[in-house]
């Protein structure tokens, strides 16, 4: 056990760490899905200029992009219960936050953070579609939402895809900070393993390789999706 890098140990750790990958993936996929819904709704609110809601979205964007993800997680996990406790004291209504698993706070924090970025990505993508497309949709008697869903949205998706992929890859890595609020995912699992075996280099190398592997798989997936979505374009690829 005196080598700087013990490969047999790395292999062992690799198999041990595999069980944390589903947790990391679950965090990423759930947060991304929820954030996409928030982002899409927010982007449409901004574009449609919906009263009151627009102010709310603007404030959300301001906060969501300004607060570090970790601070957001701390606020939710350590701060929110204090508010809820005070609420229970005042009104006598039990909120039951003690029974909410930390995973929920983790997903909430990551979702709020990612949603703000996705809002801007979707807004930019929708704006990138030529105005004439919506005009044509309206001119044949479609409603605004039909035009958005059937025409504009599908063209905007091609534009949004690379940025969306970026955000997704970023999110995979952001999940590594949720161990600070006691959710044991890939990095959290590695930290615990290190505390037992003291083989930091091997363990973290294995974890790094795993993040790398996950990222590559999704990178390829998004690249293929992007090409599929752009089926109607022809000519030189830039």
């Amino acid at each position: 056990m005196n080598d700087i890098l013990e490969f047999s140990f790395m292999v062992e750790t690799f198999f041990e760490m595999l069980k944390f990958i589903p947790i990391t993936l679950f965090l990423t996929l759930t947060s991304m899905l929820l954030a996409s819904i928030i982002g899409l709704v927010s982007a449409v609110i901004l574009l449609r200029n919906v009263r009151i809601l627009k102010q709310i979205v603007t404030a959300y964007l301001l906060l969501g992009r300004a607060i570090p993800t970790m601070v957001m997680l701390y606020l939710l996990y350590f701060g929110l219960p204090i508010l809820l406790m005070a609420f229970t004291d005042k009104t006598g209504i039990a909120t039951g936050y003690q029974h909410v698993p930390p995973m929920v706070f983790a997903i909430l924090g990551l979702t709020l953070h990612t949603g703000a970025y996705l809002t801007e990505i979707f807004r930019a993508a929708l704006l990138s579609v030529d105005k004439g497309q919506m005009e044509a949709a309206l001119s044949i008697g479609m409603t605004w939402f039909q035009g958005l869903y059937r025409i504009v949205f599908r063209q905007a998706a091609v534009f949004a895809m690379p940025l969306f992929a970026n955000e997704f890859l970023g999110l995979i890595k952001s999940t590594s900070i949720v161990f600070t609020i006691t959710v044991v995912e890939l990095l959290g699992g590695a930290k615990i393993a290190c505390a037992e075996n003291y083989r930091y280099l091997e363990t973290y190398l294995v974890v790094a390789l795993m993040y790398w592997g996950i990222s590559i798989v999704f990178e390829k997936f998004f690249l293929i999706t992007e090409r599929k979505l752009g089926f109607f374009k022809k000519g030189v690829n830039l």
Binding site: D130, Q133, E135, A136, S139, I140
Partner: peptide, 14 residues
């Protein structure tokens, strides 16, 4: 009504 546009405005994804 229906409209024919200067820039055609055909749905590019159709």
């Amino acid at each position: 009504t229906a409209m024919v546009f200067q820039m055609y405005n055909l749905f590019k994804n159709k």
